[in-house]
Design a protein around this nucleic acid. Structure first.
Lengths: 156, 156
DNA sequence: TTGCTGGGTCTGTCAACGAGACTTAGGCTC
DNA sequence: GAGCCTAAGTCTCGTTGACAGACCCAGCAA
């Protein structure tokens, strides 16, 4: 039995496009730091150990793609500099980060447990991503969902 | 104000570990095809246009990391071959895929719309990942959640 | 025995990564 | 006003990974 998926073209696949941005080795680590409130070049570099050149490239690429924006700031008694902040498009990446963190925590943590967890600010309880359909059905398992051609689908 | 996040070490960061696997250019595209039911080398290659060598490397890496397993099969009148299937660890990646697809669909699709959408098998409604805390609060926005040190956290 | 098919390997080129040194602009100290 | 410090980079160069294209190999079928 031939997989149906083969009938559909993937030339305009949005997963491939997303991964052209997110799929570079350090992109998501940079985003992790930015979501954690780290906005400055040297703080990121120190914390994550990314080579300077690569960090500069990654930040520039993320700015080009509208995920980050550069914001000028000035500490008292210092010259003007700039820092990196998320755009709306960048904020929308949070579920991706959360899903990656959840998977990593479950399958790749050291025996003593994961180093960070995501919690609800109000109640302190742990947060995780769940799948929910528009009709309100909840906590779907991969086997309960299917991929369907969308409006931009092209038959081969 | 110094970001608090700088006080915590990231040497055992599970996001970085996850991205060492997922952060190679084609890994997630391979997983997309496998979740879509494509299990054989040549089908994947044809569909996604990944260079053979890279596809072979990616598959071997995913098998090494316990995300995929090789399963022998035999079509009638053909010699035995093998195909690639998800392990449990692999199935657990579904929320990551779903989150990436959702983001790509929202921000990177062509004007006519995204090529695929994920739907609930039972009711056909569109599925998307939402954040939910263990206390049952739902559909959290990035600003409503925080990262907290987990059991494996190490102070600098 | 020639060819086809699935599932690869071999080779060579070119871009990306990573380490380390160097640069630049403004403010501070003396 | 000479020299130093700091944040945020650039430059250089050797190593790794991506990609294209050719080649290989086992079994089946004509």
């Amino acid at each position: 039995m031939r997989p149906q998926a083969l009938d559909w073209s993937v030339e305009n696949c949005t997963i491939a496009r997303a991964m052209a941005i997110l799929g570079e080795r350090w992109t998501v680590v940079v985003l992790r730091d930015i979501f954690a409130g780290i906005r400055r070049f040297d703080d990121m570099r120190q914390r994550s150990g990314i080579p300077r050149q690569v960090l500069a490239n990654r930040l520039a690429m993320l700015v080009d793609n509208g995920v980050l924006r550069r914001v000028p700031y000035r500490e008292p008694g210092a010259r003007p500099r700039h820092e990196y902040r998320l755009t709306e498009k960048g904020f929308d990446l949070y579920p991706v980060l959360a899903a990656v963190a959840e998977w990593g925590n479950r399958h790749l943590a050291d025996p003593e447990g994961p180093p960070v967890s995501i919690v609800h600010r109000d109640c302190g309880a742990e947060v995780r991503p769940v799948l929910r359909c528009a009709a309100g059905h909840d906590a779907l398992e991969p086997r309960e969902v299917a991929t369907a051609p969308g409006p931009g689908a092209r038959r081969r």
